[in-house]
Write a protein that binds this DNA or RNA. Structure first.
Length: 762
DNA sequence: GTAGGGTTAG
């Protein structure tokens, strides 16, 4: 990728509602250091009043720049020179402390205020209150508030909002009553802060009471307050109430409509949400930049890609594409569409992308398999010091998992920890998967054990990890542990459990788990679960059972059902059933290359060359090409890739002579089977030659000559391991005593002392 | 007052 597209010229802004106007206050950063209390500056010293003004000006400047340490020093100098601090300076100092959330500084300056000023004004005290709120210290807020002699409306608003924001709603309500008792009428700000604190269904009753207070206070004609009430009902899960308030309003603005659409989206009533948008557009409500994100989300949920594109063109007409709050949801929409090119184009039109925009794009690349791009963008963002977030890291972990890129994955891991950006559960589960797919089950386990309270997804990740590595005992152990912790398994968990069983020949266990899903766990089995069971029977050679299950299961068999059976027929040499399975598979998925190869091998095994040739012709007719097979190994941080018969590597001679040492391992059976790695069109004798230099063997041989004698060898390949290479792995592990690990397209093979963890089942 | 990005699978 040659750099990202340039942003276009700025379009007219949508609405200025959210654009903070730049204040016209002086730039205090420019006040030079001559405003200091050097005793030599006699001109300043002589004029007492002027002097105080300048010092206070400097103090204000330091506060606005957030230079609190310098401010403290300067305050001391002012004390020494007997210059008093003005109320305005105190206000600025408190504002700075609040902004920086520096409670310690705030308390120091508060102390100073107490010592030097007898009766501070109400507005100073309100500043103090606000400072302690910003620093999150309710104790200090309460103390100041209790000692205040002149409590005005603002003071009450600050304190009530402080408690409300802090989740102490009861206290806020009590203060609210006190306020009324003391004869002060609450304003809309008080009600807004109380309403915003009603966060879930448990607050519904309280929310209703606040609502009735609003009506009594006659504030219910205020569009902002009404919108807040509407959103309160949405958050409390009472959509009907929200709708009632909405319909009762004299006029609604874009915010009101957006809030209601969010409500219907959360309630999974997507059609209603979309209707609302249509109505809103028809009624000519002035759209703002936030409306589109929710509508586009609705389109994604409905998979209504046409509607999404229509909305996109509407956005273009409004000239809002470059707005980050509009462009980012657009990127996500196209990612969900599976249209990564459009997503990338939309991203390029955002004039000032933020971290959310980047994460939407990166996850798009990760999900669409553009892993190189994903990693590339991540690396360049990191080096440019752009703000990253935990979403980005989660996507990077995923990409590294798919790429089996342990190097990048563990680097990103360390980096994310340093920046505190491993997101709880999301990032952690992705990390478990990353390590297990990179071949480091030990790290995966450690990553898992460090999760505070793993949820079903995290448990599923570790169970899948062990299943993927062919260790059913551990996988099932984790499944039991999961239940002992009271975490309920979901549908995907059972896929992992059943996969663990099928790869280890645990037929009875699989049957029992499938049967217990609905009964004991309340998880309804889907066709995927039945396919796992069919796979289990097939691998174990129980082909009749597999066929029976296909016929009597409560679903129409899909391609996967027949493919599993075909795999079993191939492994256990059942031509008759294999033909039936293949016919059905090709009917449902004519493009399944691996299926044709299975059938070809099956015919060949029975010496049925004519039929085998027919399969080959069929593949050619349907223009099915095998993916070019390759294997790779990482040595000292460098990745070495090999294809069949590869002679490009600088150490080719040494690699081939190492292979010669193991030559006798090639099974010399009268029937030479076709493997995924072989060229389908070449002759039998040529294929025999090919067996010697399959990419997997080349990678293993290179591993042998380029690593320490006792180091384990980890090889990755893009296709399924063939029988010869599998035997080769076993033999090498026996002769050399090395541990060999091969990840093929479906699982890990751990070769040790002449045996493989897959028990020759894969 | 409002929204936007991600976790587990064969």
């Amino acid at each position: 990728m040659a750099g990202l597209p340039l942003p276009p010229p700025n379009p007219p802004p949508l609405s200025t509602r959210n654009q903070t106007s730049t204040s016209s206050s002086a730039n205090f950063a420019q006040i030079p250091s001559w405003v200091s209390l050097k005793r030599s500056s006699s001109t300043i010293k002589t004029e007492k009043i002027q002097q105080g003004k300048l010092e206070n000006l400097h103090l204000v400047s330091l506060s606005k720049q957030g230079k609190l340490k310098e401010a403290h020093d300067f305050l001391k100098e002012m004390d020494d020179a007997d210059v008093s601090v003005t109320p305005h300076s105190y206000q600025c100092l408190f504002e700075a402390c609040g902004k920086l959330r520096s409670l310690a500084d705030g308390r120091l300056i508060h102390d100073r205020l107490r010592r030097t000023v007898k009766n501070p004004s109400g507005s100073i005290e309100n500043c103090l209150l606000r400072m302690y709120c910003d620093c999150g210290s309710c104790i200090d807020v309460q103390k100041v508030f209790d000692e205040m002699l002149m409590k005005n409306l603002v003071s009450w608003v600050i304190v009530i909002s402080a408690y409300a924001k802090n989740g102490e709603l009861e206290k806020a309500i009590r203060l609210f009553s006190d306020m009324q008792a003391s004869g002060i009428r609450p304003n809309s700000a008080v009600y807004m802060s109380l309403l915003q604190s009603c966060l879930g269904p448990s607050f519904l009753e309280l929310g209703k009471q606040i609502h009735s207070h609003v009506i009594r206070a006659q504030l219910n004609a205020n569009i902002t307050v009404e919108t807040a009430i509407c959103n309160m009902y949405v958050r409390c899960g009472w959509l009907e109430g929200a709708k009632l308030v909405f319909d009762g309003m004299d006029a609604q603005n874009a915010v009101t409509w957006t809030g209601l659409m969010v409500g219907y989206t959360q309630a999974k009533k997507l059609e209603v949400a979309l209707e609302l948008f249509a109505r809103m557009a028809m009624e000519g409500v002035e759209l703002d930049e936030f409306v589109f994100s929710i509508v586009l989300k609705v389109c994604c949920g409905l998979e209504d890609w046409d509607m999404g594109r229509q909305i996109h063109s509407h956005i273009v007409k409004l000239g809002a594409e470059s707005e980050v709050s509009v462009g980012t949801p657009l990127v996500d929409f196209y990612v969900k569409c599976g249209d990564i090119e459009s997503a990338y184009r939309s991203f390029g039109r955002i004039s000032e992308p933020n971290d959310v925009s980047w994460s939407a794009l990166i996850s798009g690349f990760s999900q669409s398999g553009r892993l190189e791009d994903c990693i590339k963008i991540f690396t360049s963002l990191r080096s440019e010091g752009v703000v990253l977030n935990s979403f980005i890291y989660t996507s990077v972990f995923q990409a590294c998992a798919a790429q089996a890129n342990l190097n990048m994955g563990s680097q990103a891991h360390g980096d994310a920890i340093k920046r505190g950006l491993v997101s709880y559960l999301y990032g952690e589960s992705a990390m478990v998967t990353m390590y297990s797919k990179c071949g480091r089950l030990d790290y995966a386990r450690r990553a898992f054990e460090s999760i505070d309270e793993p949820d079903a997804v995290a448990w599923t990740a570790i169970i899948s990890g062990y299943a993927y590595h062919g260790n059913a005992a551990e996988a099932l152990g984790f499944f039991r542990r999961m239940q002992s912790y009271g975490v309920r398994p979901n549908a995907v968990t059972f896929i992992a459990v059943l996969t663990a069983c099928s790869h280890s020949g645990l037929v009875a266990e699989a049957k029992q788990y499938l049967g217990s899903m609905s009964r004991d766990y309340g998880v309804k089995p889907t066709i995927d679960h039945y396919d796992c069971m069919i796979d289990t029977y097939s691998r174990a050679g129980l082909l009749q059972e597999a066929l029976e299950l296909i016929n009597r299961m409560p679903f129409e068999p899909d391609a996967m059902s027949w493919k599993s059976l075909l795999g079993g027929c191939w492994a256990h040499c059942d031509l008759k059933l294999g033909k039936i399975a293949a016919e059905n598979l090709f009917r449902l998925d004519p493009g399944d290359t691996a299926g044709y190869i299975l059938l070809f091998n099956l015919y060949s095994a029975f010496g049925k060359w004519e039929e085998a040739g027919h399969v080959r012709k069929l593949m050619a007719e349907r223009e099915l090409k095998k993916e070019v097979s390759c294997s790779w190994i990482s040595v000292k941080g460098q990745v070495h890739r090999f294809v069949v018969g590869d002679r490009h590597h600088p150490q080719t001679e040494a690699i081939y002579s190492k292979l010669e040492e193991f030559k006798c391992s090639v099974i010399d059976s009268p029937v030479r089977l076709l493997n995924e790695e072989d060229d389908v069109s070449c002759s039998l004798s040529a294929r025999k030659e090919q067996l010697l230099d399959h990419s997997e063997k080349l990678a293993i041989a290179f591993g042998l000559i380029s690593t320490e004698d006792n180091a384990p060898i980890l090889v990755f390949k893009n296709l399924r391991a063939c029988r010869d290479c599998h035997e080769f792995g076993k033999q090498v592990s026996m002769v050399t005593g090395r541990q060999i690990v091969v990840r093929d397209s479906t699982r890990f093979h751990h070769f040790k002392s002449g045996k493989c963890s897959c028990n020759d089942y894969w």
